[in-house]
Amino acid sequence: MSKRFGKQLLAGPYLFWMIAFTIIPLIMMGVKGLTDSQGNFTLNNLMAMGNPVNSQALILSLELSLISTVLCLLLAYPLALILRNMGSGSNSLIVFLFVLPMWMNFLLRTFAWQTLLEKEGVINGLLSALGLPGINIINTPAAIVLGMVYNFLPFMVLPLYNALAKISDDVINAAHDLGANRAQTLVRVLIPQSLPGIISGITMVFVPALTTFVISDILGGAKILLIGNVIEQQFTVSYDWNTGAGLSIVLMIFVLASMALLNIFDKNGEGTVL
């Protein structure tokens, strides 16, 4: 017994680090968000989300991240299915190709789209060389959605592929033998069986898209405020940490609520992480 306790002590540094640099900071943020600058209890910082500028930013964030998540799912599901059906062999290299951009520096990936979409950018340069009219989507919500889909697509592909690869060919053949056509197999077998992957993909795209401030900053030209930008500016521009923390708490509630909602669909709870 004492030997076992000795072993348990090895988790000590871990517990220390997690408590000191994850739990305590979150508690401090909670305290900051629930007090005013004098340190008295208040709910005003949470209520600040009701202020039209902030609530509009939150609604726009919810809209854009929802659109991006749906687009990612629609693009990634066929992709993951094709990758799965290609079978093993050459397959690991191809999967590697699809997740490689995920590891390229996130800032540089977003910067790349700015370069492409700018008024004097690469796409417009090519279009005018061909004598075609230019496109003008930089600094619009469309550019932000494009940036989100581009940055987070691999996060959707990977869990979907992992979930689909687990489904054995026998199951699919059985469905065909029992008279299901392709569409029925997809709806009745593949989608339900890959649900944990779908859930985890949605989480991995929706949460970063909802909370980003970088993509909107670089592709929205600081003209379009998402909730991430509002919060970031509270801390770095107006130095109002209390309001910033209050808004962060509300944002966190939205994140947790969306994850709880997703978990209802995921009965096994397998898809929560990665």
Binding site: T22, P25, L26, M29, T203, V207, P208, L210, T211, T212, F213, G228, I231, E232, F235, G244, A245, S248, L251, M252, V255, M259, T272, V273
Partner: peptide, 9 residues
């Protein structure tokens, strides 16, 4: 699972 902006702040 936490949003990065929340962890950072």
């Amino acid at each position: 699972l936490n949003a990065e902006i929340v962890t950072g702040l």
